[in-house]
Design a protein around this nucleic acid. Structure first.
Length: 613
DNA sequence: ACCCCCTGCGCG
DNA sequence: AAAGCGCGCAGGGGGT
């Protein structure tokens, strides 16, 4: 402890919940080895609160725990926020993803069972729910044990797993980047729990008025179609000639049930059109829009409104919005690329229309920031393509690229999207050739990723997140095709190219997710430094248990791949806007190092999400 | 009754 | 059929 700086970076404290309110803590060295015997504390929450100290105070420890998703919500409910953690479950997912690729099919490590590292029933339930696909117990001490283990054994297991993880992180090809990824992923889990608790400000009355306006009054019974939908469904059926009257012509009726053809049933819709002499490949919007038949108008309008009603109607409002807050559950690392997923509430698929209902509290505003053209900029930085990076140094990337495509911005965009997604239809092939010639490094980067995928190899994001290896099914399919004596399965080529498109996109999407995650957690850190009431948070009293008073600190309330929303007091908006832009600049530096590529944000300060540009 | 797959569409 | 990547969710329809 001679050098205080060394201490700042090295204090890690392992946490294991015990029975009741108790728990075990154990301070660790930088290599993960314990400095002491685990200390039993009667009130774990109080102990963490005390060691964490006030924001802006002495450096906070990095809490090493089985899973933030399992433990942190309970801490937050008790009014305790922490600055940093190492999430063993998330780290395990990153490491086993990496090592599974190296070990190929055999020799895969048994994933850590987070539930086995917890003791508290509630925490175990939450943590276990997060990782239900992980079956085996990792710890011989716990394997097969029907009773809850001794917390000291659990603590020892946690310490061992964590130390092992540190070693594996250190042995990565790029240990600095990979440890940044683990730290950011862990901090992401903190943000996710905090955002779930804060909730998105959601005006139920605005939402309800919107629904009533579009659909008619809320039906008395949940199963009933609102008036507007019932009307459109009837128009749709009638357009096939059936009036619906008993004994009448049956053009608009289902052959078997005799009921009017149901616009919610693709099969019935296809059948009805076929009976009218129109054979359709599907009932998708893109197909139907070009069909000339009187049923199409009402059907398209029905589909649009029915979607709103079923996915984000009154039932959704009842289920997900309480006290004018929408509280979704985020799943950190839920997408292979590192993007977040959500559970329940369709949090990451909220229709733009409903952004009208997202309104800041009185005296508060929303700071909405989204990264502009993130993925092509990421590709520019990844590939180190000089010509491309020069274009990406400017505000509108596609306009800068347009000169290479005869001045047509649209063509530049199509070429970029095709390069990143693997599309080659229509004019894309020709535009890709231009891209290849003018921006060889950028083009070569995604082409190499595609080739790796087609050959069954894995690729990684800039910070080292690994894509999943191909399935056994994929291997047998493609290996048969490679065998000259074997029969050529046409599916083999298709499967190979499909995986090529996946890995081609993975390098871009996952590196963009790296950037966005680092930006998010940097922003979180910066927001805690924004003063409330014009005073430094350093001099404010620390939060009291229960925290009855409303937090005045700016709060992250939403994160959607490349976009964040901060809810803050109006007078804090300028500081939040500055924090957002610093977080973006910092993320660019941390993730990509020196690069001339810029990652601009579109930032708006608004009362209503729908007003963000 | 429940489960699973398909279709279609919302978001990035 | 404007297409190529990643998701979650609701409803229909078939299976058990």
């Amino acid at each position: 402890m001679s050098d205080p700086r060394a201490r700042i970076s090295s204090v890690r404290v392992a946490v294991v919940p015990g029975p009741g309110r108790s728990g075990l803590l154990c301070q660790l060295r930088e290599d993960g080895s314990p400095t002491e015997d685990p200390v039993e504390v009667a009130d774990l929450v109080a102990a963490i609160r005390e060691r964490e100290g006030p924001t802006g105070g002495p450096p906070q420890p990095r809490w090493v725990w089985p899973s933030a998703a399992g433990l942190y919500p309970a801490l937050l409910r008790a009014g305790v926020r922490v600055a940093r953690c190492h999430d063993v479950a998330l780290a395990d997912a990153l490491l086993s993803g990496r090592d599974a690729a190296l070990a190929e099919t055999n020799g895969a490590r048994t994933p850590v069972d987070v539930a086995a590292l917890t003791w508290d029933d509630d925490a175990a339930e939450v943590g276990g729910g997060l990782l239900t696909h992980q079956q085996p117990l990792f710890d011989p001490v716990l394997a097969g044990a029907p009773e809850r283990p001794d917390p000291r054994d659990t603590m020892n297991a946690l310490i061992d797993v964590h130390a092992d993880q540190l070693g594996r992180i250190g042995s990565d090809e790029h240990p600095g980047r990979f440890s940044l990824l683990v730290a950011a992923e862990s901090a992401g889990a903190l943000v996710a729990a905090e955002m779930s608790l804060a909730g998105v400000p959601w005006r139920a009355d605005v939402h309800d008025a919107l629904l009533t306006d579009l659909l008619g009054p809320r039906p008395a019974l949940p199963g009933q179609r609102p008036a507007r939908l019932a009307d459109l469904a009837a128009q749709f059926a009638a357009a096939f000639g059936g009036t619906g009257g008993p004994g009448g012509p049956s053009g608009g009726q289902h052959a078997r049930t005799g009921k009017p053809v149901n616009p919610d049933s693709p099969a019935q819709v296809l059948q009805a059109f076929a009976a009218a002499g129109i054979r359709l490949p599907s009932t998708r919007f893109a197909v139907l829009r070009n069909v000339d038949h009187p049923a199409v108008g009402p059907l398209l309008e029905y589909k649009e409104l029915a979607r709103l009603h079923s996915a984000f109607g009154w039932t959704w409002l009842d289920t997900w919005v309480q006290g004018n807050r929408f509280r979704p559950e985020y799943v950190v690392g839920g997408v292979v690329s590192g993007r977040w997923a959500s559970r329940g509430g369709g949090a990451l698929q909220i229709p733009r229309l409903l952004r009208r209902a997202v309104v800041a509290d009185p005296g508060w505003v929303l700071v909405v920031a989204d990264a502009a053209q993130l993925e092509p900029r990421v590709l520019a930085a990844l590939a180190g393509d000089r010509a491309f990076a020069a274009a990406a140094a400017a505000g509108d990337l596609y306009s800068e690229l347009a000169t290479a495509f005869g001045g047509e911005r649209r063509k530049a965009k199509v070429a970029m999207l095709s390069a990143m997604y693997g599309g080659a239809g229509g004019e894309a092939g020709q535009l890709l050739a231009v891209l290849r010639q003018r921006f060889p490094a950028a083009s070569g980067y995604v082409e190499a990723a595609a080739r790796a995928g087609e050959e069954g190899r894995v690729v990684r994001s800039v910070l080292g997140r690994t894509c999943p290896p191909p399935s056994a099914n994929w291997r047998s399919l493609t290996e048969e095709a490679a065998d000259p004596d074997g029969e050529r399965d046409p599916n083999a080529g298709r499967a190979s190219r499909a995986r090529g498109r996946f890995t081609r996109n993975f390098v871009v999407q996952s590196s963009a997710a790296d950037w966005a995650l680092v930006m998010l957690v940097s922003l979180r850190a910066a927001l805690t430094k924004i003063a409330t009431h014009g005073e430094s948070p350093r001099v404010l009293p620390s939060a009291k248990p229960g925290t009855p008073a409303r937090r005045q600190q700016p709060e992250l309330v939403f994160f959607q791949h490349d976009e964040v929303i901060v809810h803050c007091r109006r007078e804090q908006a300028d500081a939040v806007v500055a924090a957002v832009s610093q977080a973006a600049a910092g993320a660019s530096r941390l993730v990509f190092g020196p690069t001339r590529v810029v990652f601009p944000l579109n930032t708006s300060v608004v009362d209503c999400y729908a007003d963000a540009k």
